[in-house]
Amino acid sequence: MTVIDFTAFIDRLATASGETILPFFRTTLLGVENKSASRDFDPVTEADRAAEAVMRRMIQANFPEHGVVGEEFGNQNEDAEYVWMLDPIDGTKSFIAGFPIWGTLIALLHRGMPVFGMMHQPYIGERFSGDNRSSRYRGPSDGRKLAVRRCPSLQEATSFTTSPLLMNPDDRAAFSKVEAEVRLTRYGGDCYSYCMLAAGHLDLVIETELKPYDIAALIPIITGAGGVITTWEGKPAQGGGRVVAAGDRRVHEAALKLLNC
């Protein structure tokens, strides 16, 4: 069984999760809970849980031998040959604030490696997908192949991070070195930043404290578009943690040097 066998099913997962989420978006009746035991705010909504539950039921019905790792309902058979990683709403804080810069992340791992990923934004009607060899965009007006853009130096780069306030003090200090060098830094975006990098609209994304389900779906999208994504140590990124994604290897290498000096 090859990755191509799963593409139609992944589209069905995206459609079903989107249909589940949209009735909750931009409604004043949305229930929000804080998952954090500390003073931090780590929200979860009814939409997160309902969408993940729908996708899990579909996976279990169609591929009962597969594993599932999800943000809301934990891990099931995670040592299986094929494992699905699900983040029903990446960018929940934007979701509850009514901003459409969130998405559903669906990843398929084969023997621990992400081999297919999709980011679905059902409100706008956009799907970004990739299989490490090529990546595509489908939206309201068109569909096209994704390709990163060339950027020879940090000084010419546009950089994104969700928020430096999410970083610990040491990581924030390291990030500030990169921020001081790039042409433009913007905050926010969550999964959308990585998709805009794959589409050639920005050059660098730097994050910390990521969970595997936050990043696994985005790796095949970025690499399929010609980009590079690793940890701050230059290792594979599917385990999450501190992550650097770039469209041009020269920018990636320069960012790594500053983050680790």
Rank of each mutant, 00 (worst) to 15 (best):
T92W: 11
F24G: 08
P140S: 10
A53N: 00
P140M: 03
I206G: 06
R56N: 00
L259C: 14
V205M: 08
T208C: 11
S94P: 07
Q238V: 14
R12L: 13
D171Y: 05
D248C: 13
E181P: 08
R57M: 06
D142P: 00
D170M: 12
A80M: 10
N168Y: 08
S153V: 03
G200W: 03
G227I: 09
A199M: 09
Q238G: 06
A37K: 13
M113K: 14
Q155A: 15
A97L: 13
L259I: 13
G224L: 07
V148T: 12
E65Y: 00
D131M: 00
A97S: 15
A16Q: 05
P100W: 05
A174Y: 06
V182M: 07
S134V: 12
M1T: 14
K35E: 14
D42I: 08
I96Q: 00
P140R: 09
K177D: 06
I21E: 01
G247P: 01
E207H: 02
R57I: 04
H201V: 12
C261I: 15
T162D: 05
R144H: 15
R138A: 11
I229L: 11
D42Y: 12
K145L: 09
V228C: 04
K35R: 15
P236N: 10
F99A: 14
F99R: 11
G241S: 02
Y187E: 15
A147Y: 10
G98V: 11
R250G: 08
Y213M: 01
R150Q: 10
R138Y: 12
T2K: 14
E209K: 15
G240H: 09
G247D: 06
V251K: 05
G130Q: 03
L256W: 09
D42E: 12
K257H: 14
C261V: 13
E126R: 08
S129A: 04
D48P: 07
L218A: 08
H201S: 02
V228N: 06
M113T: 13
R26P: 05
R250L: 15
T28C: 02
F24R: 02
E209W: 06
D79H: 15
D48S: 06
I219R: 00
R242T: 00
A147D: 01
E181S: 12
D142Q: 14
L86K: 03
A198Y: 09
C151R: 01
E72D: 08
F63S: 04
L204E: 11
I222D: 00
T230K: 08
G98F: 07
R57V: 03
R127Y: 00
R49Q: 14
R56A: 04
G74Y: 05
G188K: 00
R172T: 04
V54W: 03
D170I: 08
R49G: 03
G70P: 12
F99Y: 12
G241F: 00
I21Y: 02
G200V: 13
H66C: 06
L259V: 15
G70V: 03
E181K: 13
L30K: 06
E253S: 10
F25L: 07
L13Y: 03
D90S: 07
A51W: 05
I106C: 03
D203G: 11
L105D: 08
A216F: 06
T7G: 07
C191P: 09
S129C: 10
L109N: 08
S163P: 09
V243W: 00
Y194L: 13
V115F: 06
Q121P: 01
V243F: 07
V83N: 08
N34H: 05
A225I: 10
I229S: 10
